[in-house]
Simulated scan of single mutants.
Amino acid sequence: MKGKTCGLCGKADGEVRQDYRAPNGRLAKNSVSFALSWILPAESCKDFSECRMKFESVQLERKVNVHGQDSTCFSVEPVLRCLPGCSPVKTTSVNVGFKCFAADSTLDPSNIFDSSVDLRDSTEAHLACSCNAQCS
């Protein structure tokens, strides 16, 4: 099976530089982003056997100036976040790529994960969540 398998331990082909390959096929930039990419997201916060988290694009918390324009940036790499109705009880800082758009533009973030990277910055990933009884 050498070189014909893939997963958390890479392709088992002896090439260690490819061992941080995420399930989406992209190469993770560090071990934390790599490990978080393999967590299975939840569908509902009502099932206590699930992690109560999902992957999503997050907005950079600060405005930046890109090519002379004030811009709003969204992550092109998925970040673990608590489901609606849940709050993070444990977080970690992750470094991800962001795509930036002019602050006054209308954008469609649905295909953001296929976008090029304008900058890399840190954001918070949620590692554990607490959910209320009326979660969505």
Score class of each variant (00 low, 15 high):
G3I: 08
E124S: 15
R26Q: 13
R17Y: 13
F74K: 05
D121K: 05
T92C: 14
S115P: 03
S122N: 11
I112Q: 08
Q134H: 13
R17I: 11
V96H: 06
V96W: 02
S116I: 01
K2V: 13
Q59D: 06
G25M: 02
C9L: 07
S110L: 09
K63Q: 13
F101D: 00
L127W: 07
S31V: 15
G14Q: 11
Q134R: 15
A12S: 10
P88F: 05
R21I: 04
K4Y: 09
G85R: 08
V32L: 14
G85A: 08
V76C: 06
C100P: 01
W38T: 05
C135H: 04
G10S: 06
V89C: 08
G68L: 00
C131N: 03
S49I: 02
K29I: 11
I112L: 08
Q18F: 09
S44E: 05
E124A: 15
E43K: 14
F113W: 06
P109M: 09
E124C: 12
E15F: 10
S33L: 10
K54F: 04
E77W: 00
G25R: 02
S71L: 08
S122T: 09
T123R: 06
L119A: 02
D118M: 04
R120P: 01
S116D: 07
R81L: 02
P88A: 12
F48D: 13
F55K: 08
